[in-house]
Design a protein around this nucleic acid. Structure first.
Lengths: 154, 154
DNA sequence: CTACAAATCGTAAAGATTACGATTTACCAA
DNA sequence: TTGGTAAATCGTAATCTTTACGATTTGTAG
């Protein structure tokens, strides 16, 4: 993915280039991610948004669309505790991690990756990937009292 | 939890102290975790083990037992990608992270926590917790060819 | 405009986890 | 040793997320 690819136009362009079609349902999904640019959304959020325009939208379509967008690196997935997975608009080709707000799903990019500081003997253990996220409450949610109930994350 | 609390005797003792009963089913669960001391196990693994001794064991019992043991900090939980959660015997009171083998669930303790290197403005974002794991293949799984198929973790 | 493959629908299955009333059991006290 | 009581467990089914699939619709190249 090219940096700065975040308009509906550019995203649909990229889908086309990789041999996929431009459909109204995909447009709705993409528009929602653009509207909540820095935020993680659940499949349910996406379903409910598209449902407003296409009342007969199928779950199958939502999940396949999410899989397609992730495969094209247009959105990023996050395993969100024991709740459902969440997705957000991809924020660039460079490797990064996030601060994630447990109240509203808003995110901030973290600079630096902890793997730089880890020394692992690759003879002993072949690293495939890693996971790093910091959870908490953004100032908006903290001030609105949403950060006082202990949080949903174990 | 006290350090080195890893015998069946000690664990049952601690359960008793916190007002819980010593049952044959709990003993089976604890024995399994002790047998696979450094390894993550799924609820299904636990269910199938206990089932051998108590063929009519209920799912409810397994999940409540796991929740109890986790609440008492006797086991640790890990969200394992889009698969089921996994649990392992707690390895001590001090904060730590793990290397996790995608082939067999074996783990190694990592020294040092990435949060030491992260500078976060607590005015801006109130940190509640964080998550850090490194996934890959241990030497045993790599040699047996289990690490060549691309791995199950996205 | 036509044809074909991609995309979607509608419905249901799969798998993990939780819920709950009824029953059994561990354990304290007599 | 024996009850009594609350905890633990059973059996069964619901819930929730995600996936599957044959039938149908639709985008798009030619």
């Amino acid at each position: 993915m090219k940096a700065g690819m975040n308009s509906e136009q550019e995203i649909l362009e990229q889908l086309k280039e990789s041999g996929h079609r431009f459909t109204g349902k995909r447009k709705e999904v993409i528009d929602l991610f653009i509207e909540y640019k820095d935020r993680y959304l659940t499949a349910k959020d996406v379903y409910e948004h598209v449902e407003k325009v296409y009342p007969s939208i199928s779950h199958d379509t939502i999940y396949r669309t999410l899989a397609l967008l992730e495969q094209e690196h247009l959105i990023e997935e996050l395993e969100y505790g024991d709740e459902a997975c969440r997705y957000r608009l991809s924020c660039g080709p460079e490797h990064h991690h996030h601060l994630v707000c447990l109240g509203c799903g808003a995110t901030k990019v973290l600079h630096g990756c902890p793997m730089e500081f880890m020394e692992i003997d690759q003879e002993d253990f072949t690293v495939v990937n890693h996971r790093f996220e910091i959870f908490g409450y953004c100032s908006t949610c903290r001030l609105s009292g949403r950060g006082q109930e202990g949080g949903g994350q174990k």
